[in-house]
Computed example of a mutant assay.
Amino acid sequence: MTSTATITRDAPSTSFRFLPRIGLEVAFARSHESGSGAVAPVDQLWPQRMRSVVRAGLSRWELPELIADAELLVTELVTNALRHGRGDVGVRLSFINGHLRIEVCDDSPEVPEPRAAASLDESGRGLFLVQAVADDWGVTNNGMTTWCSLALSPLGRTQ
């Protein structure tokens, strides 16, 4: 049986499903004010909401050792999607070949690339954090999905 929950706000509704040991998906509509380097005030809570979803899913799947890293990764990828992407944002967690895979997609075909942030910059380090924390990461050929993975076995993780 698939459990479904709905999160609503003033914008279109958001829903997610927990599929035991298969994964979960969340999609939400961004404000038209987010993008082009800015995140609208109404969208600034989405990274926190996605951390809560990730924490709940990993707790349900009895994978507490992945929670901190997965929360950081989803925060960075969702923030990048809100700031630089366009259209709805989707978040997917799945299990592939002994790894938790985190995917964040939007409607922008622009391929995200790490950039060199100056020491006093308040942003610009997200993909460097993803590179540092994730076991692997990349972008799909169409540029619309940025993904990263974490090994499920603590023995497979480098600390």
Rank of each mutant, 00 (worst) to 15 (best):
A29Q: 10
V139Y: 00
L150M: 13
N97F: 08
V139L: 00
M1F: 07
T146I: 14
A151G: 14
P41L: 13
D121N: 10
D107E: 13
V111H: 12
V26F: 13
D121K: 07
W61P: 00
R115S: 11
E113W: 11
H99V: 09
P12G: 14
A38L: 04
I67S: 07
R83Y: 04
S149N: 15
W137Y: 13
S31L: 11
S52V: 06
E103T: 05
A68H: 13
G143R: 07
T75K: 05
R86V: 00
A38Y: 00
G87M: 04
N142T: 02
V42D: 02
L93W: 05
Q159I: 10
E122Y: 03
A151F: 13
S153F: 09
R55H: 02
D106F: 01
G143S: 15
T75P: 03
L152Y: 15
M144H: 04
G124Y: 05
G37C: 05
F128M: 10
A68C: 11
S31K: 12
V39A: 08
D121V: 08
D107Q: 11
T145D: 01
S149R: 15
P20F: 10
A117W: 13
T140P: 11
S153I: 09
S59T: 15
P41D: 14
L19G: 08
L77Q: 13
R49E: 01
D43R: 08
R49G: 00
A117R: 14
L58N: 08
S94K: 01
F16A: 06
R101Y: 02
E62H: 05
A116C: 04
Q159P: 07
L82W: 01
T14L: 14
W147T: 14
L155I: 06
N97E: 15
A11N: 04
A56M: 00
G98C: 06
A5N: 11
G98Y: 05
I22A: 11
S34G: 01
Q131K: 08
R9Y: 03
N141D: 05
S36A: 15
R157C: 04
T158R: 14
I22F: 11
F16E: 07
L66I: 10
G87C: 01
V139S: 01
D43Q: 12
